[in-house]
Design a protein around this nucleic acid. Structure first.
Lengths: 251, 251
DNA sequence: ATAGCTTTGTGTCAATTTTACACTATCCAA
DNA sequence: TTGGATAGTGTAAAATTGACACAAAGCTAT
């Protein structure tokens, strides 16, 4: 199910936009959902951009970010967090950028402040269709992204850093995994986000000691090797943990 | 030296403002520099507000925040960091708020997004004068603030939380202290920011082990008790430390 | 069916870090 | 000179971290 622009009767605010860094995890590495602006815009700048749009005057910033996410992927109830506001006066400097902005109904003359968000989606919940609504979106491994349109690369960096800090404090990584996952997958996830290797045994010991995972009596199927046990995140146990004032996972 | 509005020839952006949470430390507790909007505005809402203003179209967000700080206190080169963007459509709901906004040249009808910053100033560098430029500003202990105008209380909370997290990662606390300070003052500072007691001996041991302080051969003077040794923050030593990938002070 | 490939899952020991805790030293003021 | 206030210091037990290697389980190809 895809997209349905709401609030057509409200005014777009020409000065404020939101951009979303939509993180996914392909069980190997961290990825981001990018939009291909097509060959037209590519003459003078990178084709790939973060999804984003201007905000409506009757929605708050979080709502706008959720709307952008919903319009692109059809997903709701997704972990979402603000990264911050970006807005140099010369943020949009290329002719191609102006053209692109016109195409999404933005006023290319005005100075635009953008509020960046990052969201964590279980990648299995959204597979871009070649035929999906207008936009040409695709998952791209973070490590392969060297440039983006506008100031989006800078925004991506900031989002990665924020995610990195946040995961040391709250177990938000689970939002990137399917409901049932293996410890190895979780391990890989932490390594990709923290961008450093973590000793396997020490990682498992640390996670298990936290006691916020439910171990299922179920194994992986169809893998060409010893199948792993599956686990679920245990929200209740985590809430108990936070009651104690716990706010440091020590990575 | 006080204030001199620059960039008068540039346009104010009616949709975007910055607000500054200016933190100080009176050697006892964390404080914030607030503006008293006066009795006129107080009929329907709290008198005290964070300093802030609309941004000009030719300045970026950081510049705008620095300008607000400069106009109010005359201070430059101050530690400054973005907290985030705030902007519910109904952010400004009270009649008194609208009046107040008019008085600072803001367009009270328009929906305003505000970008919040926090700054850390050595409190001794700015003592509000009763006769200071127009605005009636004063240091208020954070613990005594129960409400603020607009959504400024919410912003303050966010700023406190950001500061708390940040100080666990970078030794920015020194920006709140005079150049020469005692370990007890630093200790108190960390306690106020983290909002929890820290064992004196353990704190001192931890700080000293980091080896980012220069111990001066100089003592406190005029205190009615055993005078403390004075220390300076050693920027070079800290830079060395970060080279090692260090990013966790373990509080 | 077997051999080989791949990933899972596990324990220990040494080093480091954390926590809890109490008394003497030094200066000022009365 | 005494009393009041804060500075400054050490240790022992407990917890955490970091480094490290091999057998078990399932799949695949022969």
């Amino acid at each position: 199910m895809q997209h349905n622009p709401k609030k057509i009767n409200s005014e777009l605010n020409p000065n404020v936009s939101v951009d979303c860094v939509i993180f996914g995890f392909d069980l190997e590495q961290l990825t981001v959902l990018l939009i291909d602006r097509g060959e037209i815009s590519s003459a003078f700048g990178p084709r790939m951009a973060l999804p984003g749009n201007l905000i409506y005057d009757n929605e708050n910033l979080d709502m706008a970010a959720n709307r952008v996410l919903d319009e692109l992927t059809g997903l709701n109830n997704i972990y979402l967090e603000q990264v911050g506001a970006f807005g140099d006066p010369d943020r949009i400097h290329k002719e191609s950028d102006r053209e692109w902005l016109k195409s999404i109904r933005a006023e290319p003359e005005a100075r635009v402040i953008t509020v960046a968000y990052f969201t964590l989606v279980p990648m299995s919940d959204y597979k871009p269709q070649a035929s999906s609504f207008a936009k040409n979106a695709d998952w791209v491994p973070v490590s392969e992204i060297k440039e983006l349109a506008f100031d989006h690369f800078e925004i991506l960096q900031a989002a990665k850093e924020k995610l990195k800090q946040k995961i040391k404090i709250q177990p938000i990584g689970f939002n990137l995994l399917p409901e049932k996952f293996t410890l190895s997958q979780l391990h890989r996830l932490y390594e990709s986000i923290l961008d450093k290797p973590l000793d396997k045994r020490n990682f498992r010991r640390k996670i298990q000691k936290l006691d916020i995972l439910t171990s299922l009596r179920e194994k992986q199927r169809g893998v060409p090797h010893k199948p792993s046990l599956l686990y679920e995140f245990n929200e209740e146990k985590y809430q108990e943990l936070t009651q104690t004032g716990f706010d440091n996972f020590g990575f």
